[in-house]
Amino acid sequence: MKMTLALAQINTTLGNVQKNLQKHLALIQQASDRGADLLIFPELSLTGYVLQDLVPTVACHPRDDDPVFRPLLEASQKLDLMVGFVEEDERNRFYIASAYLSRGQVLHVHRKVYLPTYGLFDEGRFFAWGDSVQAFDTRFGRVGMLICEDFWHASPSYLLWLDGADLFLFQSASPGRGLSEKPDLDSARWVNHILRAYASLYTSFVAHTNRVGFEDGLNFWGSAAVYDPNGNQLIEGPAFEEALTLVQLDLNQLHRTRARLPLLRDERTALVSREMGRILSDRSRSSGR
């Protein structure tokens, strides 16, 4: 089976959901015209990233009675979508979230589990932590979504793998940093190491898209990329510029790679569970030894 995946790397207007929504709808039309089956947007694509006290004013609900999600759900009749937004739950907690929309339905919402609150990041101050990592079925197979810092921890992607994900969709608003003599920033290189490693270790497809533009002094470096189950980079979007990058995925590559390299077949999940239980049974050490 083949599918055409489109990666949107966009700039956003900070705190102006309507303006960002219009950009989403325009790109959805473009991607649809170019034959995309699935279009993915970066983290917080509907709001912008450094929201601080804007968080409560930009939150929405991934339902068809929501004025932001209604047009997106209508647009998802044409092609599947993954968008980034601020979700407010029924008890008024705010999450960094991504929603997967298909044929007018919300198939899944992932709430960012790991909120970086160190260095230049201050997410834990403004957002609630997500508390679940689950794969879900789509018309292209089983998918797992993670948001930026989530994939800097090894466990969420591992859980998604065991939960059946063959296609990993990652979204970021990654501030560019780490200028050296090398032709790319440290932050771009670090992310691409991880994407390639996951594709290789999980013998799966890994797709990532990332913001561009500036918010005050922060730059976002774009360079959306897709890796195949052999760990090969299939495509990379341009750095720092808005772009819509399309790539065809041959999902049968999962079969060929796993016939050669049965890492999933040989994964010792009972051993993992047993050892995890042993390591974490010492209650004084909740994060391991």
Binding site: G176, L179, S180, K182, P183, D184, G213, F214, G217, N219
Partner: peptide
């Protein structure tokens, strides 16, 4: 320590910053 920077990359980010801001 080596403080050498990639000047093309710096130029790209800094001109983008000026234009954007």
């Amino acid at each position: 320590p080596d403080l050498t920077i990639n000047t093309e990359l710096a130029q790209r980010i800094l001109t983008g910053f000026i234009r954007s801001e």
